[in-house]
């Protein structure tokens, strides 16, 4: 085959630009850390990548949801703990007041403390997380107790409804504890005790409240046990999501991330090839017969 200068130079130019092209692809890969920058380089990787991204963002979102779930459960548990303590204190006071040795003056003093307890329970009924009343069911903007009365179920229809949050595909956790029944019962009981202490009732009447009080105690404990069980479930979910996140990240990375050692080695190889091509090219191109004819 007859080979001419213009063929040599155009071939050299093409080879050099191919070499630049390869280096630019490798550089893109190293800079971005990704195997591909456009779908046409590998449509399969690209479409899978879109799916994995969504998977990962989903897991991350569920983790955020879990934070909110914990917030609700912890706050509810804490508030109910205080309610439990108040009930225990109530039991002590009522047991104390039931003694017939107590004068009506003594009982008045106990009544003052009961009034305080009642106010505390009313405050606890209005426990908030952020701007939300957590014991008000789905009526989170309605305080359970407005200072004089408990909220009306006929107006605030969501008081007994569950607040649910999704923590995984199709897995919803009920995060609230409906408080209207519990708090209004305790409040009503406190009211009755308050009256009985004031109107000079006999010790047997007052001690009669003790069974009701222990029933209340049980109610509170039941609610707390329920919360505890849910906290356990959430914890399990957290662990599952954490491993899910690792798996999703790994799958995404395996799909589209480059192997740095490999790519950098390829880059260096390509660089040396390029240098060699340049130096050989410059030698071939520069000499013609012209240089040797005198």
């Amino acid at each position: 085959m007859r080979v001419t200068q213009s063929m040599l130079s155009s071939n050299m130019l093409r080879n050099l630009s191919n070499s630049y092209g390869k280096m630019s692809t490798l550089q893109d890969q190293i800079n971005s850390g990704k195997k591909i920058t456009r779908p046409s380089q590998d449509p399969v990787v690209a479409t899978k990548g879109i799916g994995y991204r969504t998977d990962l963002s989903k897991v991350e979102q569920y983790q955020r949801n879990l934070g909110e779930v914990n917030n609700w459960l912890d706050s509810s548990d804490d508030a109910l703990d205080h309610v439990g303590q108040a009930v225990i204190r109530l039991q002590e006071l009522v047991t104390d007041a039931a003694n017939d040795s107590k004068t009506s003056d003594d009982r008045k003093k106990i009544q003052v403390e009961i009034t305080q307890l009642r106010e505390q329970i009313q405050d606890l009924a209005n426990t908030k997380v952020g701007d939300k009343y957590i014991f008000s069911g789905t009526n989170t903007q309605t305080p359970l107790h407005d200072g004089t009365n408990f909220a009306d179920l006929l107006i605030a229809t969501g008081l007994n409804k569950e607040v649910k949050m999704e923590v995984y595909d199709g897995v919803e956790i009920n995060v609230n504890t409906t408080g209207i029944q519990l708090f209004s019962d305790i409040d009503a009981l406190l009211g009755e005790i308050e009256t009985s202490l004031g109107d000079g009732s006999a010790g047997t009447v007052i001690s009669g409240y003790l069974t009701d009080i222990s029933k209340m105690q049980n109610n509170v404990l039941e609610k707390r046990a329920d919360i505890g069980a849910r906290q356990n479930r959430v914890e399990m979910m957290e662990n599952r999501l954490a491993s899910q996140e690792i798996i999703a990240t790994k799958r995404m990375s395996e799909n589209e991330d480059i192997d740095y050692e490999k790519t950098i080695t390829e880059m260096i190889t390509q660089e040396s090839i390029h240098t060699a091509a340049l130096s050989v090219g410059s030698k071939i191109i520069q000499a013609t017969l012209v240089d040797f004819i005198r």
């Binding site: 990704k34 991204r53 963002s57 979102q61 955020r64 949801n65 909110e68 989170t140 949050m165 589209e256």
Partner: peptide, 26 residues
Amino acid sequence: EPSDFGLNESLDQFWSSLQILSTSPD
């Protein structure tokens, strides 16, 4: 695509924001 600013990403963010809304709708 694939990127952190395509239509897929803006859809993902939209779905995510709805999830957040479901946890604190008020």
